[in-house]
Design a protein around this nucleic acid. Sequence first.
DNA 1: CTAGTTGGTGTAACCGGTTACATCAGGAGC
DNA 2: GCTCCTGATGTAACCGGTTACACCAACTAG
Lengths: 355, 355
Amino acid sequence: MQEAARRSGIERRRVTIRDVGRAAGVSVATVSRALNGSESVTLETRARVQRVAKELDFVPHAGAQSLSLQRTDTIGVILPDLHGEYFSELIRGLDLGARNCRRNLLLSASHGDISEAIGALRTMRSRVDGLVVMSPFTDGDLLVDAVNGAVPLVLLSTRASAGADAAFGVDNRAGAAAVTRHLLDEGHRPIAFIGGPADNLDAQERLRGFREAHVEARVKPGPVLRGNFREESGFSAGLLLLQKRLPDAVFAANDAMALGCLQALREAGVRIPEDVALAGFDDIPLARFLDPPLTTAGVRIAEIGRQAVECCVGLGEGRATAPTQNLFAPTLVVRASSLNRRRAGPPPSPTGGTT
Amino acid sequence: MQEAARRSGIERRRVTIRDVGRAAGVSVATVSRALNGSESVTLETRARVQRVAKELDFVPHAGAQSLSLQRTDTIGVILPDLHGEYFSELIRGLDLGARNCRRNLLLSASHGDISEAIGALRTMRSRVDGLVVMSPFTDGDLLVDAVNGAVPLVLLSTRASAGADAAFGVDNRAGAAAVTRHLLDEGHRPIAFIGGPADNLDAQERLRGFREAHVEARVKPGPVLRGNFREESGFSAGLLLLQKRLPDAVFAANDAMALGCLQALREAGVRIPEDVALAGFDDIPLARFLDPPLTTAGVRIAEIGRQAVECCVGLGEGRATAPTQNLFAPTLVVRASSLNRRRAGPPPSPTGGTT
DNA sequence: CTAGTTGGTGTAACCGGTTACATCAGGAGC
DNA sequence: GCTCCTGATGTAACCGGTTACACCAACTAG
């Protein structure tokens, strides 16, 4: 038994609540009460216990506590990836929420793979009081099944599912429509679209917004290219666009692809926005620093993360929280990349363009 | 399958190992053995137990397991911040390492505050098998004290401490010296330096590398300005520089500040690199996309994170891992921002500069 | 046919907390 | 002086796993 305990001879035995009790001359119950602020303990006893606990460097065993109290003070988070500015911002918000609620954050990446996500879910299920999961590439139902009601489940940017306790997301459709309208208002047409992965909910909705704005304006949309939300795919799309007659504007379904496209066009000597206007989506920090600064749809990513965690904690405490469906409206952020500065100058030549 | 369990009223009791035992007609010991792959179980019994466990959607209680086994399969991570490209990369590496070792990742930010870091340490101590802590603003000893040998402790970019079990970091001095030498080789002098926070180890070492390279080259260093590693402070430093005679080059102690400085200079019409050359440190993804692309010292951040976690897990398993002191050498990444393209042209004017 | 062995399984102790309930001292009320 | 009450504290059951040890059938060996 407990092989682990005597694993290495020099191993130091944990200080338990019994050790504290013995040293303070009281029972374990009193120690527990003294440290957890139950009022039925003499001031003097409480002080003594606290002093002894500090002296012995006593820290309660989280596992024992969770076994006894049936809670872990931890929220689990599963994201498709942990990489890039978008997720960085999201994680910051998640941490903020966790800190506000005095919870720990257990983090994992699913790498866009549903079976990895479900695997992560299963390991996490028993170690957390609630889960926040982002899984834009699948139906929420699979996740709901995997959690099976064990803990509250909050979905981010995931196709809503009746089984989830709450869902947060961005109003991609409205955001994309706003960007598209802006491009049309500037007089750009046709507008090409660089889309995200076919199975990605955000990507689908953004494309939808793009199309709806065109219908509304009675303008025929430009070509729709397929991307995967990564910079390289924006670059490839840019190359593809260069092979035909260039559109007046390009709207990429996220900033990373807009960036890639910008690279491709610039390398070919195309001037932005003089020859082709450009817009993205997300407003990652980098967008402001591009040359030219990128027009995009701004999403308060961190804020979404914070609210998701706080909602999740609330659900776990039985507090009926605000609406369980929550769509954040992005703001149109107009920067130089989308303005109409079309000039009579010669068509793009390989030597032209910005410095 | 889970149908029955799901619809059973509101209050759903956890499925325990005893429930599985009862349903499979065996004892808890047999269930445990069957599920944990002990060999002394009939194939037939094992199959039946596994089937029943799946049917009941049994997931072992992590707290109970950690109480019994004295391990949590979790590694705790405390970083100064979770925000920005640098930490994003780091977290990605940490996750990679955790995944390789089949561990969970418990994440927290200290916001550069030593007391917050220690608080986080105390809550984590009892929930993890090991800790990876980055705390460039303080002495490692405080952290070592707070952990007090409860679990293995791996430090990142932190002043080494005898009490820590291992330490990883970047050879900031060599990296900064390499960048400085490169700038000098290009013929830039004097070179101004934008430093990081005074109490930050990385910042101190980078400044040291900057100075040493000057001594070595027998060149007098330019002015050293104070920054805080954030973009705004780079911007302020840029404004300050503009008030006097501009140096030939500016070396910012990290890329974020280089970026801020670039903004300030560009707004004043200073051309980079024609009027002033610029270099940073870290090689965050953004560096390649600046205009002009930024010369910097490349650090394999994710790789450091991965190794730190894997080392931490190894220590917990009693495996004596590689050297406990580990400095990664950055690579000099030369891009356009630092080249000598000085021209006879007129001194910077508000209307000059890049597009 | 008995004694010894072996392999599968069950029983119960243990991990370290929390807390319902028991206990006990001391003061109030009669 | 005795009972009753009250408030501080102790005892032990419980949370849900793991595993040492006991047990027992079925077999082998003598």
